[in-house]
Computed example of a mutant assay.
Amino acid sequence: MQTIICSHCDLVSQKPILAPGYVAKCARCERILYKNKAVNANKLFALSITALLICIPAFSSPLISIHLLGVTEEANLLQGAIMMIDIAPLVSFVVLFCAVVAPTLLTVCIAFSSGCVVFNKRPSLLNSVLKLTAILFHWSMLEVYLVSFMVAVFKLISYADVYFNSGLYFFVALLILNMTMLCEYSNTKYWEYLRNE
């Protein structure tokens, strides 16, 4: 019989046998212990490859154009983070990591693990990729960046003319793909596949 440990209160329980779509809760703290969610690896593989293709224009294309005193400036995500290095290096690093590096690495990890399931491969690297995926899951914060970006835009509107560019549409598409992937993904199911259960 397999056991499962609650990540919140460390209670050790027997792993329940659940019908698809049901969840098991911890007897002590009532937190979700285990979800029996069917994972469609083909869908996740397609979503992750699409997200990787959209990453390039989302990060490099201009998000907005600012017109002030007869001068128009364009800004994209990477330029904005790099420009802050001299003023606030820690903020610049956090923005680059949480809005660019972590989401891209997470997408690569999901693409790799889903590709392994789709093509029925179990490389030794899959173990490390699944561990990295669990870590990056909490650091991918595209939605936080979008909210802070929109707050900054609303503050700029009173001082200058602001125009949305194609990069913003790519970024929103990437955010939607990323959220869909995170909702569909189940690390537990991929570990079960790795252990050949």
Score class of each variant (00 low, 15 high):
54 I>G: 04
50 T>Q: 12
120 N>C: 06
131 K>N: 14
81 A>G: 10
173 A>P: 00
129 V>F: 06
62 P>H: 14
127 N>W: 13
144 V>D: 06
7 S>P: 10
69 L>M: 12
163 Y>T: 11
99 A>K: 00
146 L>F: 09
51 A>I: 02
187 N>V: 11
76 N>I: 01
82 I>P: 05
18 L>T: 06
12 V>M: 11
180 T>H: 14
80 G>H: 14
14 Q>H: 11
191 W>S: 10
83 M>P: 01
183 C>A: 11
98 C>K: 00
1 M>Y: 10
192 E>A: 04
185 Y>D: 06
98 C>G: 04
82 I>M: 09
100 V>E: 04
60 S>H: 07
124 S>E: 15
107 T>Q: 08
123 P>K: 05
31 R>T: 13
53 L>D: 06
21 G>Q: 03
89 P>C: 02
119 F>T: 07
45 F>H: 10
132 L>V: 04
66 I>T: 09
161 D>I: 11
150 M>I: 14
27 A>K: 05
167 G>A: 08
115 G>P: 00
9 C>S: 09
135 I>V: 15
12 V>Y: 03
22 Y>G: 08
109 C>M: 07
99 A>E: 09
77 L>Q: 13
181 M>R: 01
87 I>C: 02
142 L>N: 01
15 K>V: 10
161 D>C: 08
109 C>Q: 01
123 P>L: 02
113 S>H: 00
66 I>K: 01
85 I>T: 11
42 N>P: 06
143 E>D: 15
160 A>G: 01
191 W>L: 12
57 P>Q: 06
171 F>H: 02
124 S>V: 13
78 L>C: 06
35 K>C: 00
129 V>H: 07
4 I>H: 06
58 A>W: 09
57 P>W: 05
104 T>M: 12
43 K>M: 05
34 Y>Q: 02
96 L>M: 13
99 A>L: 03
81 A>K: 02
57 P>L: 13
174 L>I: 04
156 L>T: 02
26 C>T: 12
100 V>R: 01
59 F>I: 05
3 T>A: 02
109 C>I: 05
35 K>Q: 11
22 Y>N: 15
65 S>M: 04
77 L>M: 13
23 V>F: 10
188 T>R: 11
27 A>G: 08
82 I>H: 03
170 F>W: 07
